[in-house]
Write a protein that binds this DNA or RNA. Structure first.
Lengths: 234, 234
DNA sequence: GAGTCTAAGTGTACGGCGTACACTGTGTCA
DNA sequence: TGACACAGTGTACGCCGTACACTTAGACTC
């Protein structure tokens, strides 16, 4: 009967939780979060929707599984460097992963409870702080200060004018500027080339996300470092 | 014919965009974000679902309208105080509003473009910074640093053990602590009463959200103040 | 008044969703 | 050989947002 099984597996690999999750992630990478539906995933796997439920309890659990897959991609923290560098590198590693899976930030936020994998990640972050001599109290505050940034994203309220034709971006900014005086200042500076950001900004966008992310990250890390040394000397 | 109109209005006020939005907000306040569906809102108003579409383009626009209603509740910034105080107060005012409408943070984040009302709010925040002598560049960075916190929330990854029976909370923490060594430290401190937070913590929760929010806010504001004065002297 | 025009509210219907539940088929082991 | 477990199927239900064609009622003109 091996023949039949082989034939079967040649025409279609058996369904597994892993295959389902991988397919779901690929689908989300390609088409955004809206393209993950149980029906769509099943179709991609050449299977009837209800088949998925033999390997995954429900959609919520599937989303958790997808998050785990993504978080597992984050490189471990570098060893033998001071805490600030370790934390900085790890967070930027997380950011790189989340940029590869742009849907993940939103899904992580909209899921209620963090998955064990996420908790494990947080735990290792706590480890870095405690090893550096942070008190438990300050470590606790530190996590709250960093908030979501610790996972490599910081849902901004404004995407600025990413990937918009220059002409259109200009029209938008000046349109807005008529109503909002302070936004006008920002827009003006942008079109004078006055706002530069150290590097040449990404493809003409008004705002280099990566620069802003690191700027904020460093401000926060420096603030925490000051508190840590103050705590140590007290 | 006034009689008939009066009779009609006695039995049911005419449908308006305002009435729809107010009902939607009330519904969300009462039952969370999942209880806002076009059908549910219509039912609440004693009207057929499609009637809503005469006053609201689609569900997305309805959500935008709800956000506007909420953002409009935020008190204006105090006048005649230094920038840090003004910003702090305004952000805490925003937080108070968002605590009254717990669904709003999630909705604001999941809507793509910010509404004009939100942009107006951000613009007034920019005004505070510019008036305090921030350069346009630093003002821009500052907004990114504050991120969502500027609107009074900071989607945390962990809700700690809010509103959970003490017994259950303890079991959860110690259960987690077996697998996650650093979390164990936090749990230990909590149950020894070692982590105190200045005030008595809210109804026995491990973690006083308000305290954490203000701690993070102040750390960030202090960091920005340092950058501002450094910039001024350069 | 009679007739027309407009806009508010209705009713029906479509294609999507997650998933409950009863089924079929196939491989394993007694 | 027959019992059993379990992967995958098929059908169906009750939600969802909303397109589109309709009735109805008030306002406005002649």
């Amino acid at each position: 009967m091996a023949t039949k099984a082989e034939e079967r597996s040649r025409e279609r690999a058996p369904l597994t939780r892993e295959r389902i999750l991988a397919t779901a992630v690929a689908l989300a990478d390609a088409g955004g979060v809206d393209s993950i539906s149980m029906r769509r995933i099943a179709q991609e796997l050449g299977v009837v929707p209800m088949a998925l439920y033999k390997h995954v309890a429900n959609k919520d659990e599937l989303l958790d599984g997808m998050i785990d897959l993504v978080v597992a991609e984050i490189d471990p923290p570098p060893q033998g460097v001071e805490w600030k560098t370790a934390m900085r590198e790890r967070i930027l590693a997380a950011r790189r992963v989340l940029l590869r899976h742009p849907w993940a930030a939103r899904v992580i936020q909209s899921q209620g409870e963090p998955t064990p994998t996420v908790i494990g990640y947080l735990d290792s972050m706590m480890g870095i702080l405690l090893a550096a001599g942070f008190s438990i109290d300050l470590m606790h505050h530190a996590l709250h200060v960093m908030g979501s940034r610790i996972l490599g994203f910081s849902q901004d309220l404004f995407d600025d004018t990413d990937s918009m034709p220059e002409e259109e971006a200009k029209a938008m900014w000046t349109g807005l500027a008529e109503v909002y005086p302070n936004l006008a200042a920002l827009a003006g500076a942008y079109f004078e080339g006055q706002v530069t950001h150290d590097e040449a900004s990404t493809v003409g966008g008004a705002c280099d996300d990566q620069f802003e992310f690191e700027f904020a990250l460093d401000l926060i890390l420096d603030g925490l470092e000051r508190l840590r040394t103050a705590e140590g000397s007290a």
